[in-house]
Amino acid sequence: MRLFHNADVLIALILVVAMVFIGLVNPAFWQMANLFSLLKANVVIGLMALGVLLVMISGGIDVSFPAFAVAGMYIVVRGMVELEYDGVVIPFLVATLIGALLGLVNAGIIHKFNMIPLIVTLGTASVVRGLVLGGIGTSNVNINQMPDALIAFGRTDVLTLERANGTTFGLTAMILVYIAAALVIHLLLTRTMIGRSVYAYGADAEAAKRVGFNTGRTMIFVYCTAGALAGFAGLLHSSMIWLANPRDFVGLELDVIAAVVLGGASIFGGRGSVLGTVMGVFILVMIQNSLILMGIDTTWQRVVVGGMLIVAVAITALRDRRALV
């Protein structure tokens, strides 16, 4: 069982310490409304982080998924508006498919030309953003144009509580989608041959090839799943905020990569777990959302996130310390 891996226990400890600390600074942190909104903020970043986790376990890095998320979201929402279609299942399938196809492009270029994933995904991100903004449109789809079914889906609550003054607040049902996705990825990674091949490829690509893994298929699995999760999360995001903005998710790659690294994944590949990533996402979102609760000016937010990333990668680098060459 990898479930209670050492690294995961350490991350859980950090998480608990951080929660206790923030709670001491401002007890408002423990209010259910705040906790529910924290969980809600986890969903979209978390779904994307599951994809980035796969890429990082395979020893790569992906900075194109925010662009893919925009593509999935904006193409589908604009399409629904144009066709006057109202529904949930088909749009999400299409957004996921768009993401998966774009991921296939990444996988193809990286595998075929044996190119550094960072540079390939920088390129595909620019291509996709350029195509979406230049080819499809630059205007927001606002709440009055957004398909009703999407809005209704995004505002579904799984649990509703009442405040002392009689107003109600709820826990978004999207958290169930996130948990389900995390479970599927966890089972894929730990119980299937293709999942094990991702770890093998990340630990040593050449060795994985020699023991008979079809590494091309591994790459396709990794980047398509990452793209699919991004496309799905993109549309989910727009149905949760009732807005489709083609310039959304700029700079999100850093937050997500920081969360995955915080969760114990190594950029050298071969290491990382779903549980760790889920906790890493929670830590990142919690600290971002709690800066205001702790009375820190929001202009410091990027300094804090960047600093957290550096500390997290420094710790994992010390852990993974390899021979000099």
Partner: peptide, 26 residues
């Protein structure tokens, strides 16, 4: 960060880049 702590250049500079932009904002 890269040579002393042996952080990969991608992640080290991604993080410091955010810190520098954050300092610009501050």
């Amino acid at each position: 960060l890269i040579s002393g702590l042996r952080i990969t250049p991608i992640l080290a500079t991604l993080g410091t880049g955010q810190v520098f932009i954050g300092l610009c904002l501050v």
